[in-house]
């Protein structure tokens, strides 16, 4: 075996990536070859140095930042989903809804349409519109209440 191949095997031995017979063969070679034995020692020591100390995160704020962004993304994706549902309504259905709405308003102004509710009639019965300003109406109303 070439020396370079042998050292490559040593690297695999350090990682525990050789199978049974290959491990035995590599270990036998280490007892015979001082160069490879030295290379093995150095690789083991290097591996320990890399394993024993590693950069780390001081706190969990990075994970929190990620989660906040995911949450924001998830919410905007929700809006997109609702919007996409609307897109699924056929265009002819939207035109039909619009036409019915316009037809219902036919002959009336928008204000009339909106003021169709009963409460507007009740309000007219309570305070008669005599062409007075709102302040006059309120003063009259206050005086009549005080008179009681």
């Amino acid at each position: 075996m070439r020396h370079i191949d042998c050292q490559k095997r040593i690297s695999l031995l350090v990682d525990g990536s050789l199978d049974g017979p290959a491990v035995r063969e590599a270990l036998d070679h280490l007892t015979e070859c001082p160069d490879c034995a030295r290379a093995y020692e150095k690789m083991v020591s290097l591996n320990n140095a890399l394993t024993n100390v590693k950069p780390s995160l001081a706190d969990s704020s990075l994970a929190s930042k990620v989660k906040v962004r995911i949450s924001g993304e998830s919410n905007s994706a929700g809006y997109a989903w609702n919007f996409s549902l609307l897109k699924q309504v056929p265009i002819w259905a939207l035109i039909a809804i619009l036409a019915v709405g316009v037809g219902d308003m036919a002959g009336k102004t928008l204000t009339e349409t909106l003021n169709m509710h009963d409460t507007s009639h009740n309000l007219e019965n309570l305070i008669q519109d005599n062409g007075e300003s709102l302040t006059d109406v309120l003063i009259d109303f206050g005086q009549s209440e005080n008179g009681r």
Binding site: K54, P55, S56
Partner: peptide
Amino acid sequence: EGEPELEFA
């Protein structure tokens, strides 16, 4: 680049 936080085995 500042010194990173280190984690010891």
